[in-house]
Design a protein around this nucleic acid. Structure first.
Length: 581
RNA sequence: UGGGCCGUCGCCAAGUUGGUUAAGGCACUGGGUUUUGAUCCCAGCAUACCUAGGUUCGAAUCCUAGCGGCCCAGCCA
């Protein structure tokens, strides 16, 4: 193990990974001089999701970390906008916001593949001139038919032998708009018999008479990903171009383009290198763009920022935090093996972050009335609760106690089961920050539902007073004075899907059975109810995070929360070793 | 059955120019603190690195043969 790797382990910092090792080598050899330049290259055709968060922390994090030893290290936000039929400005703005939300300032380092259209076009002509690209006039069906299969080589196009002059002429006319979509296509001249399908004369430029969100109608031909991406990397001086595993087979093509262009004098070495890592797989969610779109357009969720959705917009509204995502990214690491991360890992990361930063408050989510029969009617007294158990400097706040209180319905059992140590007839429990009480009875309605609970308090046991510690009770429940609480809309969210792998085969399924992931949606993932909260909670700002004691972490809704109508979303519950067993 | 990538504890993941006892995190289990069944603290947790052979004084690391998983036949990215 290297010294730096040992340090990382000892300081419990980010673990070493194969990408860092590669970069370390390049730094040691000064391959790229004093810089490590990465890029985050989303296509602006959808919203960013949890998988992108992994990539963002990887790319921006690397540039940030290496800035210490390689001062010129940077990470570019680059919109990969080479397909005008799918991309929109709306997404560009949303992506920029999400990246900023995660904590990365992209001002001054915002790039677009479309900014390089002229240069890309020039590179294409260069390849044609070098007899390394040709205009094919077969239609897409014919191209598919001659591409061969995984086990059989393809056949050369009849247009493969066109002269350089003819190719140049046709390509220029393509660019001039003389042809309709699909009439011709520019292909790299590599090898139709290559075992790697990507090398069988891949398409470089296609005709698309479409309006581009940034270049308007200036172009009617657009470069393909494989061509645009490597050239964009080279133009921006990217040193390490990180992408997911499915692009591994594209690397030879990435290198082919850049090597040829370097030989032709268009780029100087060192050239950027592509390195692949495995994409994020998470249980209980779907992360494919197609499925996400289906959920939104099919009305299965309430828009792209639905708190149930694994989009960054949804996460923010759910109350997930950038710091929580950072923890998550560090925890799952980076490698090339296919991994499946349990959703609880993400939830734990959010809990850990929120535990540290969220002030405590009291909310009764499913209120039932408790009457202290020996407490004077009309009397009110102050109880004091710390705002954070580990941070005394955050102070305390006053919580008024009176005769009639709201407590959590599930904190009372008329006939307690074994191990239940909250309130039950004849049993004692402490009102958190208040007195010890003893249950003396309860009312039932016609449906045998508990409607009211009665108890007597012990005046000698008030929290914080001398002698209050003399008697210990195991149970400790939260409460709110009826007169001093306000109703709030409480949105209880849970995992979007009811099964770990939505849409996947299950044991016992017929081999040919096709399951629809939509059928695996968890109908209980959203549950809206009215609870009672501390008075001051209504006044908080949207997006304020709190721990509602004994209930979980909640956030004031980004859009709907107002002082007049408070709305809180449950981010994640507290861990509960009682509920488990 | 073409090519590429991967296979180390329940989940991640170091280690892979062969060298004594296979990092770390999460989960889990046990104990302690605690006015949140939360948090926090302490301890435990792979004679074993997909399998089988082989090379070697010595192999997770090298060789051979298998097995298993993922990706690729868009004028998408």
């Amino acid at each position: 193990m290297t010294d730096t790797a040992t340090e990382r382990t000892n300081t419990n910092a980010v673990a070493n990974n194969f990408i860092r090792s590669r970069i370390d080598e390049d730094c040691a050899k000064k391959t790229y001089g004093e810089k490590v330049v990465t890029r985050f290259p989303p296509e602006p055709n959808g919203f960013l999701h949890f998988g992108h968060a992994k990539s963002i922390f990887l790319n921006f994090g690397l540039a940030q970390d290496y800035a210490a030893q390689c001062p010129q290290s940077l990470c570019n936000l680059r919109f990969d906008d080479t397909n005008p039929t799918k991309e929109e400005t709306e997404y560009v703005d949303a992506i920029r916001e999400d990246v900023a939300w995660l904590g990365f300032d992209t001002s001054g380092r915002e790039f677009y593949a479309s900014n390089y259209f002229k240069r890309l076009y020039h590179c294409a002509e260069l390849l044609i001139t070098a007899n390394l690209a040709y205009v094919d006039s077969q239609d897409s069906d014919a191209m598919r038919a001659t591409r061969g299969t995984l086990t059989e080589p393809g056949k050369n196009s009849p247009f493969r032998t066109r002269t350089i002059e003819e190719n140049l002429d046709l390509f220029r006319r393509m660019r001039a708009g003389e042809f309709i979509d699909g009439a011709h296509i520019l292909r790299a001249k590599i090898d139709m018999a290559a075992p790697n399908m990507n090398l069988r004369d891949p398409a470089i430029y296609r005709i698309r008479h479409a309006h581009h969100h940034r270049t308007g109608d200036a172009w009617c031909i657009y470069p393909m990903y494989d061509f645009a991406h490597c050239v964009s990397d080279a133009i921006e001086g990217i040193s390490h171009s990180l992408c997911t595993l499915e692009f591994t087979d594209h690397r030879p093509l990435y290198e082919w383009f850049l090597d040829r262009l370097a030989e032709l004098g268009e780029f100087t070495r060192p050239l950027p290198q592509q390195i692949e890592f495995s994409r994020l797989n998470l249980t209980y969610v779907v992360l494919s763009k197609r499925k996400l779109i289906q959920l939104v357009t099919g009305g299965h969720v309430d828009g792209w920022n639905d708190p149930r959705l694994p989009t960054l917009k949804g996460a923010r509204r759910r109350g997930f935090t950038p710091e929580g995502f950072k923890r998550f990214a560090d925890r799952i690491g980076v490698s090339k093996s296919d991994s499946l991360i349990d959703y609880s890992v993400l939830e734990d990361c959010m809990r850990e972050d929120l535990n540290e930063r969220a002030e405590r408050r009291v909310a009764v989510l499913d209120p039932i009335k408790l009457v202290l029969t020996n407490y004077p009617d009309g009397q009110t007294e102050a109880c004091f609760a710390p705002n954070h158990p580990h941070h005394a400097e955050l102070g305390t706040r006053e919580i008024p106690l009176a005769r009639e209180l709201w407590i959590e319905r599930e904190d009372f059992m008329p006939e307690p089961v074994k191990g239940f140590f909250r309130l039950a007839p004849g049993k004692e429990v402490r009102l958190r920050y208040g007195y010890i009480i003893k249950c003396t009875g309860f009312d039932l309605d016609a449906n045998e539902q508990v409607t009211c609970i009665y108890a007597e308090y012990d005046p000698e046991t008030k929290s914080g007073t001398p002698g209050s510690e003399s008697r210990k009770v195991k149970g400790n429940i939260h409460w709110l004075s009826c007169k001093h609480a306000v109703p709030a809309e409480i949105r209880l969210y849970d995992r979007l899907f009811a099964v770990p792998n939505p849409g996947a085969h299950r044991e016992g399924d017929a081999p040919d059975l096709e399951r629809d992931f939509l059928n695996d949606i968890n109908p209980a993932a959203k549950n809206i109810q009215t609870g009672m909260v501390e008075l001051a909670l209504a006044q908080c700002e949207p997006e304020s995070c709190y721990q509602f004691e004994r209930n979980g972490y909640f956030v004031a809704d980004q859009y709907d929360h107002t002082a007049g109508k408070p709305v809180f979303n449950r981010t994640v519950t507290l861990r509960d070793s009682w509920g488990k067993s």
